[in-house]
Design a protein around this nucleic acid. Sequence first.
DNA 1: TGCTTAACTTGATTCACATCAAGGCGTAGG
DNA 2: CCTACGCCTTGATGTGAATCAAGTTAAGCA
Lengths: 252, 252
Amino acid sequence: MTIHLAESGENAALKQCSHDYQVNCSSCRLNSICLPLALESEDIQLLDNIIQRSKPLQKNQHLYREGDDFQSVYAVRSGTLKAYKTTDDGREQVTGFYFPGEILGMDGISNNTHASSAKALETAATCEIPFTSLEKLSSHMPSLQRHFFQLMSREITEDQLLITLLSKNSADERVAALMLSISTRYARRKLSATQFRLPMSRVDIGNYLGLTVETVSRVFSRMQKLDIMRVDNKEIEILDPEALRRMANLGR
Amino acid sequence: MTIHLAESGENAALKQCSHDYQVNCSSCRLNSICLPLALESEDIQLLDNIIQRSKPLQKNQHLYREGDDFQSVYAVRSGTLKAYKTTDDGREQVTGFYFPGEILGMDGISNNTHASSAKALETAATCEIPFTSLEKLSSHMPSLQRHFFQLMSREITEDQLLITLLSKNSADERVAALMLSISTRYARRKLSATQFRLPMSRVDIGNYLGLTVETVSRVFSRMQKLDIMRVDNKEIEILDPEALRRMANLGR
DNA sequence: TGCTTAACTTGATTCACATCAAGGCGTAGG
DNA sequence: CCTACGCCTTGATGTGAATCAAGTTAAGCA
């Protein structure tokens, strides 16, 4: 069972502080939304065996960088990360934010090279899933194979949503849509859907949504004035979810 | 030369006119860029067995529609298709163009429902690959599993490219980038990289790139005036590829 | 504790592209 | 053959968000 104890007792120590350092998928409170989803408990055990849990990343530390050899995909255990690409002229494009239970790094599969960089927006812990092991395991576990195909497909549909957002929606709509998306993701983890702290800066938000910081800031002010949200720096409180949905104008 | 005889001898007839109606992967001239890529010839045979080749779609016919049950992914054999989503307020977002050898429909895997619609921009033939069969086959053929993971990952990285294009680049840059992309895809099929016919309308281009028809048209005029491209309705000739790359401003 | 720098907000101005409007051209159908 | 419609182009005008410019608040650090 023991995977890579550097020295004695590490595993035992980890078990003791399991609230911030989960040691296995079976006991992880994210397992219903993460990769183990839809696996039998014995299968979860097998998956568990290939997963490597490393020490948390500090804020601004990289999990991987664009161009790095692709070895693994990662599940977020705690904290938040952003994925981004750097264009040749040095500008940055944020391609996604990753919350606990979400998987990142799949864009590296196609070329065996990470197509984007990932850095921690705050202290963050991840589970590393070596891809070759995952591939082998998938061959023997149809439900895992299926689930991983679905995860990749989900990434595609989410990218398409962002594409539509960028090409068809106004600044107000984009920001509102992001707030709704974040709210939903908190709710999925049984956290408040109406009060939360944004882990990313205004710059990151603008960057993700194809807007400037100034515009993002103005939209927040506008939402505040309309009593749709209370915005106190990174603390968000959604006062009128219905109005927010109307503002996002995405339908349902 | 006769193409789709309904009655006897269909297979034999097809073999005779294999240049426009490929009957198997082994003899398909697209097999080096399509799904069979990286498969052994005996494995290609197995893949071949699950693939269904149906009669061509006419222009504007749908291959599948958003919301349809997901059963299969498709490889383009000839012609071109566009994938698009319809937003709740009725507008359309083109999410991709698919040329011969390219795979579409993977966005349906996540929900067992097609997340976008696909329609033929001109007469087009496809190979239907039933997904459950593909899954089973993948379990037994590591190289196929790997290749399909890579295809999905490629779709992700390409969507990310479009995201960056939409959020960071000017109208000129977007159109130039699309022309380069199309040029590359023709070249991959050993066709001219500098002279080709655009299968899609200006509306579709605008829709894909988040621009209006008028803007697309103006960019084409500008390119023509600068002697970067000759544009005669849908006929394109790239006169100065280097200048086009500079205009796209994507670096290499 | 105060200093320094990063992150955010707000206002004034500019600009790229959308919108509105009209005319040209190629193709299908009577 | 002519008419009609879809598709494309070009011009004039409007506008949402970018840019430029300050100032404020929050946060790291000596």
